[in-house]
Design a protein around this nucleic acid. Sequence first.
DNA 1: ACCCATAAAACTCAATATGAGCATAATCGC
DNA 2: GCGATTATGCTCATATTGAGTTTTATGGGT
Lengths: 318, 318
Amino acid sequence: MVIGLNAVIVAVTEERPRVLTVDRAPAHDALPFGPLDVEGDRTLELGLRRWVREQTALELGYVEQLYTFGDRDREPRGRWGGRRVLSVGYLALVREVPAAVGGVRWRDVYALFPWEDWRRGRPPVLGGKIERGLARWVRSAAEPGVRRARRERADISFGLRGAPWDGERVLDRYELLYEAGLVEEAHRDRERRPGGAETPSAPEADPLVGRPMSLDHRRILATALGRLRGKIRYRPVVFELLPPAFRLLQLQRVVEALAGVELHKQNFRRLVERGGLVEGTGKLDPETGGRPAELFRFRREVLRERPSPGVGLPGLRT
Amino acid sequence: MVIGLNAVIVAVTEERPRVLTVDRAPAHDALPFGPLDVEGDRTLELGLRRWVREQTALELGYVEQLYTFGDRDREPRGRWGGRRVLSVGYLALVREVPAAVGGVRWRDVYALFPWEDWRRGRPPVLGGKIERGLARWVRSAAEPGVRRARRERADISFGLRGAPWDGERVLDRYELLYEAGLVEEAHRDRERRPGGAETPSAPEADPLVGRPMSLDHRRILATALGRLRGKIRYRPVVFELLPPAFRLLQLQRVVEALAGVELHKQNFRRLVERGGLVEGTGKLDPETGGRPAELFRFRREVLRERPSPGVGLPGLRT
DNA sequence: ACCCATAAAACTCAATATGAGCATAATCGC
DNA sequence: GCGATTATGCTCATATTGAGTTTTATGGGT
């Protein structure tokens, strides 16, 4: 048994969430990854920090454990001498984007999940390939009961036919696309494992959605994005992604980038200011166009005042 | 390396949350636990279900992964032939309490965490042993900076000196008590591992708080309770603990038992009814004293209607 | 110097949601 | 029929949202 450690390292630059990837074998992005040193690493988290340091020359700050993936067949045979690999995923948030070293790059998260970014309205890929692909998947079930269950699941996950969009169901959506054979990983895995294969094949006309990643790394990233979207609502984690002093609009843009939706500016300000989440530093920003903005900082005292301080996304624009 | 699987199996009976435990070596409760069969168990969750079946004769329904614990020194040496153990914790919710088989019993969760139950007001142990113990721990730091940090952490975790109580910080609180040497496990571990030991010893006069468990199982349980408290607010998981038809007061009591607080009855009803979480079945309950109550059932359609349907605890009585 | 684009910041206002009660309705055991 | 017990209905002041409008500063042209 080998224990792998995976890091989803997220930053937000130029109003887009980005994830740190490294080059791996088959021309695909991979998450920074390495086996736990059973003797050397005292804790899993320390092992992760060590790997990330070695692979990306990055020293992590905020780190939280995400999920442990352990299906018997998740790694191609032979990868680790045929031994089973169990991998523990972590989410890390970093402030700045340091120049990437060899083979390391920052990827736009929404290049991997184009259906998750609703800031400019409903993503076109949803009404296109995804709705068509899901409809095909629903139809392809023989039993009427199974068809109904699939329909229901597709509706709830993707907000179809009147159901609302739930930004946090990132993993549900990715897993559904995988089952429906709409992401490349599903086909790649099917080839490797002829046994349990009944993944529908996508017709040539409708290519697959989103940029693929190595192994099950896109699934781990989906877990991370879903968790992060949930977490900003009740813990002040956004500030891990911002400089110590920032404009309120800057804060708003980061929240929007993560949540994948636009917010109502005035209400957002009211929320974070009256909620005691931030406080003005009398200073102004030597900035870009428009009236100069005051610089704010995170107000740590809020932790003693409110039970779950976060940017609890009211102020969602409709 | 050995992969252990731990199950926190929760039910609510007689208005108390209970956890399933099995007898283990040193007269302590333990969570159902067993190593993953690397060849046999296709997924971690299936391995867990197998172990639980074997140890408790219980077939699990709702199961969710909690956290993976992997510190190098968390198991006593020799337990698994000196090999390092990494354990994956799961939370399972079950409806009924079947008669326990040999060595298996249901433990009141609040016997393990007496400071977490605020239904009859502030738990006395908090104002007593815990406040005294924490004050001692704060004072025992040499550096004034460290003292301030400890004070702050104690205040936020336990809602002291004006800070509010946050029901979800169950793990923070347990870990703090561990560091402060107020739970038996801290002393037990200290004996085993003379190296990193600087846990303060509790004076004879002030015994330790809460019933201890084997190994780090109480910490796993703390993780589970915290997660569950969070989850009932935005996912309809309470219904996993109730029969298919129930009275609204029954539902309220289960939520209260988990959250550890009392709710305002009328407002609670308004919330779950108007929120579309439940629907009346015209039937009445052949019940206990008072006016007969209508029986309700969970309304599955709510999943298509609202993004995160749960019992989002407004209606908290003050 | 003046106009304009771009933001920030300050206010309004109607529509809901929440927190806390009071009032009335059915049962059951005497 | 009385009181205990629980269910269910209804009210009401106050806070929180959602969605604007207005006013205030700057910098960059022309």
